[in-house]
Nucleic acid binder design. Structure first.
Lengths: 132, 132
DNA sequence: CTTGTCCCTCACATGAACGTCAGGTTTTAC
DNA sequence: GTAAAACCTGACGTTCATGTGAGGGACAAG
């Protein structure tokens, strides 16, 4: 599989895939002409990388974690790192939950009949069209 | 309260506070000499801003949300935006949970006795000191 | 053998939320 | 009234994961 196909399959840009390789996160064989060729499992690897990026990990951290995921490294240090990242994600979830709660409160207030939403609606929409 | 005190109280840098003002998120009165003066409730406002930043919202989005939080704007559009952001946070939490689950699996594997962790430990630590 | 499509390597650009330094003013404390 | 501390406005620097050409090979189809 060449880079364009991998990009299509994963929904990740070609540029991003090259960047992953540059960061040491994704390896590829090269054809005689220098073009990258990937195995089928590269798709899953890309998904994993994306998942970890989405979890707020940096390239560097992912680079450190991947050997553990591949079960190639298993030391007290690596296990501590895994737990540290997991705890970071935990804290991030807690923060997100707080923010969601805050938004829910605002939503509840804005949707309660007492906030006079209907009257506010029609007026505000007419008067502030450009804002929204 | 001047900017330095607000920075100390909130743990946010002076530069960040000026940035918030530049983005329209935080307002301040000015002394005759041009220095910013904040009311006590600015502390809570800064905490709120930080919370929303932590939830992954951009300055622009926060700028749009704040009037709703302050209950100054309440239109169908604004309520839709609130719900949209809430749902975005929801999806982000889901993603984070997936990533955490994945890490937990790796952790479980690396800590299971079957992975031969003790032998791997001592060897790996001695052989790969520079890596870690 | 050519054409079109895909791919290559630089290498500079981008956006967000600040950090940091310069050069100058204001406020506070003695 | 003077010096230190805090503050002001630019304005350029930083980090990260890409976007975006430029200029030039690689490869399948006809």
């Amino acid at each position: 599989m060449r880079i364009g196909e991998l990009a299509t399959k994963t929904g990740v840009s070609v540029r991003a895939l090259r960047y992953y390789e540059e960061q040491g996160l994704l390896s590829a064989a090269r054809s005689s002409g220098g073009q990258r060729h990937y195995l089928d499992d590269a798709v899953d690897r890309v998904y994993l990388i994306q998942m970890l990026y989405a979890a707020g990990l940096s390239s560097r951290t992912i680079l450190d974690l991947l050997p553990c995921v591949d079960a190639k490294v298993n030391t007290p240090q690596s296990r501590a790192m895994l737990r540290a990242e997991r705890d970071r994600i935990d804290r991030q979830i807690t923060q997100l939950r707080q923010a969601r709660k805050r938004l829910d409160e605002v939503i509840a207030l804005s949707e309660s009949p007492a906030s006079g939403c209907t009257r506010t609606d029609t007026n505000a929409v007419r008067q502030r069209t450009t804002v929204w």
